[in-house]
Every structure is written in structure tokens, then in C-alpha cells.
Amino acid sequence: MNFTSELRDSYAEVTADGRLNMVAAPQLREFIGNLITDGSPRIVLNLEKTSFMDSSGLGALIGCLKAARQAGGDLRIAGVTPQVRMVLQLTSMDKVLAPYATVEEAFSND
């Protein structure tokens, strides 16, 4: 899995390209952990190119969400693909981490 980040006006956008599984999960945690340490705790994770997510991937999202909130920011997700949406709905994780249609919408109200 490949991660890239770009700083926007009020948040950092992270794009995750590939399969978010047991191998990629700790990599995502580290990538986002570094962003938070570098002073960007407001993060939108763009999942348009994440074709698959398993429970380890879900675990990484939860870990990143907690880390961002602890640093006074937040993690939001956008552009989820059908399989990722299914996992979020099945597990009711969409109640905790609601997916936004686009990256721009994620922080548009605050």
C-alpha cells in the first residue's frame, strides 16, 4: 500500500492506495502518527483508491482516529469504495467514523 499526504488550508489530506490489510495497517498508523507529530492532527483520509479493507485495516482507522483526537484534532474519511463501505456498515463503525462523499466536505462545517 502507498501513502501520500498533502497539506490543505485547515487539514492534511492522506491518500491510501491499495489494500488496507494486516501488512498495510501498521504502515498507515505510522504514516498518520508522523503527520500528527509534525503538527497536523486534522486529517482527511482519502480512501478512493483503497480497494479493500479487512479488520486489521479497521483497527488502524480506529487507532488513527484516537491518536488524532488525543492531539486535539480529528480523523475523517472520504471517498470510500463499496467493500470498505460494507465493512464500515456491517460493523457499525460508520456511527463512529462516518464517511464523507468528498475530501472537501469532511471539514467543511468546522
Partner: peptide
């Protein structure tokens, strides 16, 4: 249907 998210999240 589920009732809520998994255990141990927050």
C-alpha cells in the same frame, strides 16, 4: 442489525 460499533473502541 448491529446495535453499535465493536467493543473497546472508546
Amino acid at each position: 442489525p448491529t446495535s453499535n460499533a465493536p467493543l473497546g473502541i472508546m
